[in-house]
Amino acid sequence: MRPDDWHLTEDVDNFLARAGDFLRSRPGLHVMQLTWAERVRTRTTDAFGAETPVFGVLERAGEARATFYRLPPGALGLSPLTPEQADSLAARLAALGHSLRSVSAGHSTATAFAEAWQRHTGAMPKLRDTRLRLYRLGTLTPPEPLPSGRGRVLGEQDLEQVMFWCGEFAKAVGEVVSIDADSWASTRYADKRYTLWETPDGTPVSIAGMNPLIGGQIQVDIVYTPAHLRGLGYAGAVTAEVSRAALAAGARDVVLFADLANPTSNALYQRLGYRPLTDWAVYDFSRAVPEVR
């Protein structure tokens, strides 16, 4: 496979014209490709700073076979690749002088690319400790019994409350991000729709978000309950509510990521009807240390 079989573009509309049908054919495995293409398409041109996101399509006989995106300042995301495809992409990006800080994909794809990138550039890959599993919803099975209270979809009038909860979530997962009225629109949290679980007296106890409908699919993205309120059924209730909202919004597929280090959440999602789709991995790259002679 030749490295120049990869078509690179900074035009996201061109990328989607070439690869859209391919991505939508397996939306679960392509969730990050679809999500970031949509974010780049709908955000302002300066949302990513001075550098422009790059997209790529591997084409054979006029058909898309694989894709990637590269976000500033060097985060690479991949659709499933064979080792040969991963090597051809690494060769192409290295020849063009692209620098990479990380690669994320299904575990086997990320590993194949990390090894190829090391061969072509000498960059040393390090597997992140956080291990994720991607789930897809089968038949939604709400928990029984539900905790007392109700689910409520949050609207524009709830923005202050949404920002507070997203800030709490970001701190809990170690994400360094400013979330306030001035920065909100530029964060990854701004394009989501949120569902809150609140107790009968109106006290909010758990929140879940979902991304927009893209390619017939919705990703549930953030589920958060404060530590002192966990174990009371609130996370299961709010996840069931946001999953129901996703289906009501027209999603044929509903997916979410879970941290494999948290067996409680993984067991919860499976009780709700989510089934494993693939394990996910992220490698960070650093330059090789020159040998001292």
Rank of each mutant, 00 (worst) to 15 (best):
Tyr234Val: 05
Ala19Ser: 12
Val254Phe: 01
Ala245Phe: 07
Ile222Arg: 06
Ala95Gly: 01
Ala61Asn: 02
Thr139Asn: 08
Val12Met: 03
Gln270Thr: 02
Ser178Pro: 15
Gly215Ile: 00
His30Arg: 08
Ala190Met: 08
Ala227Met: 09
Val242Gly: 06
Ala251His: 00
Asn211His: 06
Val176Tyr: 11
Thr109Arg: 00
Pro200Leu: 02
Thr187Met: 13
Gly216Met: 04
Glu63Leu: 10
His98Lys: 11
Thr199Ser: 05
Gln118Val: 08
Leu76Asp: 12
Val176Asp: 12
Arg188Cys: 12
Ala288Val: 08
Trp165Arg: 06
Asp5Ile: 09
Tyr224Lys: 05
Pro226Ile: 06
Ser286Ile: 05
Leu8Thr: 02
Thr239Phe: 05
Asp180Leu: 09
Tyr224Asp: 09
Leu154Met: 09
Val205Phe: 05
Arg128His: 14
Val177Trp: 14
Arg43Trp: 06
Ser178Cys: 15
Asp87Tyr: 11
Thr139Val: 09
Glu38Gln: 14
Asp221Lys: 06
Arg92Asp: 02
Pro147Gln: 04
Asp4Trp: 03
Ala288Lys: 10
Ala75Glu: 15
Arg293Lys: 12
Ala235Phe: 00
Arg26His: 09
Trp197Tyr: 03
Ser243Lys: 06
Arg39Gln: 15
Tyr194Ser: 00
Arg92Leu: 02
Ser102Cys: 08
Glu115Thr: 07
Arg128Glu: 15
Pro125Cys: 00
Arg271Cys: 09
Val177Asn: 14
Glu59Thr: 04
Trp117His: 01
Arg131Leu: 08
Thr42Trp: 14
Met1Phe: 14
Phe48Lys: 10
Ala61His: 03
Ser88Gln: 00
Ala90Ser: 07
Ser178Trp: 14
Ala105Lys: 04
Ala258Cys: 10
Phe68Val: 04
Asp5Asn: 12
Arg131Phe: 08
Asp180Val: 08
Ser25Asn: 13
Ala64Thr: 00
Val282Gln: 11
Arg150Cys: 07
Ile207Tyr: 05
Ser108Pro: 07
Trp280His: 04
Ala64Tyr: 00
Leu8Val: 03
Ala235Gly: 00
Lys192Pro: 14
Ser99Asp: 08
Leu96Lys: 15
Asp279Leu: 09
Gln157Asn: 06
Ala288Asp: 10
Pro72Ala: 07
Glu168Arg: 09
Asp21Ser: 08
Met124Asn: 12
Thr111Ser: 11
Arg65Pro: 09
Arg24Gly: 04
Glu10Gln: 13
Pro147Ser: 04
Val12Pro: 02
Ala267Ile: 02
Tyr135Thr: 09
Gly151His: 02
